[in-house]
């Protein structure tokens, strides 16, 4: 594995509210990096700033201060179309509420990021069927989201997030709306993507079980990285135990 840095966050601050309104500082000088091919989890109590952080990384919101470099692009310096193009090309996002367009079939939903790039339809078909095979969702392709279960929807969303080979896959509680079986399937899927495609994954979760699939976990507290643990050579259940222990001390 190469040691290229995919995400580099430096002194990141985010303050909500305008200068003359009531302000709230959600992030207070955050520092961390994610290497290429890493599977990193972000945990923290509710309201600790996890979603805020992910929004900064995916350019859905702009930081108040600090630098965010994703795959060599300085996100904070981008404007307008650059931001949209960045989201379309460099990041794959899986949302808690799926975010599928219900007027399109699963296949059309998955193809959307490629269509935006202007990929030829032949290449598109090929790419769609490739991810569909990887994620075993080929039989779901002609269906509309309304005809799919939550777990199925999320797998389609995952396919859409990676079909254009982004530099990093991000998920904000992607298992949040799923039952335990579907959640487990999705996590296995993300692990497969991470291993086979060497795609970096950043997973925000408050669930220790989900987090145990990661290689490294960052704990956010009071808008800063409170602590960090690594899985190393441990198996998943041991790591799960370690996470529980860490949460125990962390929350004291």
């Amino acid at each position: 594995m190469t040691t290229n840095t995919v995400v580099d966050v430096h002194d990141l601050e985010k303050t909500y509210g305008k200068a003359n309104e009531r302000q709230y500082q959600a992030l207070k000088g955050l520092n961390f990096t994610v290497e290429a091919g890493e599977f990193v989890g972000i945990m923290g109590a509710s309201g600790s700033g996890k979603t805020t952080l992910l929004n900064m990384l995916s350019t859905l919101d702009t930081p108040t201060k600090g630098d965010v470099v994703v795959n060599g692009h300085d996100v904070t310096k981008m404007r307008g179309n650059q931001l949209a193009d960045f989201r379309a090309q460099e990041v794959g996002f899986i949302f808690q509420d799926f975010n599928l367009l219900e007027s399109l079939t699963a296949e059309e939903n998955i193809g959307l990021p490629l269509a935006l790039k202007g990929t030829s339809s032949r290449v598109m078909d090929q790419a769609i069927h490739e991810v569909a095979d990887t994620l075993s969702i080929a039989d779901l392709l002609p269906k509309y989201p309304a005809e799919l279960s939550g777990g199925q929807k999320q797998r389609i969303a995952a396919a859409r997030a990676i079909v254009h080979h982004p530099a990093i896959l991000m998920g904000d509680e992607p298992t949040g709306a799923l039952d335990s079986t579907s959640a487990r399937e999705l996590l296995d899927l993300m692990t497969t993507i991470n291993r086979e495609q060497h795609m970096s994954v950043l997973l925000v979760t408050h669930d220790p079980f989900s987090a145990s699939f990661c290689q490294r976990i960052l704990f956010i507290k009071d808008g800063q990285i409170g602590s960090e643990i690594k899985r190393g050579e441990q198996d998943r259940s041991a790591f799960y135990q370690q996470i529980l222990n860490e949460l125990g001390t962390f929350n004291e």
């Binding site: 859905l60 960045f86 989201r87 379309a88 996002f93 949302f95 975010n99 367009l101 007027s103």
Partner: peptide, 15 residues
């Protein structure tokens, strides 16, 4: 909501 989704996956405003 649909356009909000498109916005999130990186569709340009002009498009």
């Amino acid at each position: 909501q649909r356009y909000q989704m498109l916005y999130k996956i990186g569709v340009r405003q002009n498009l």
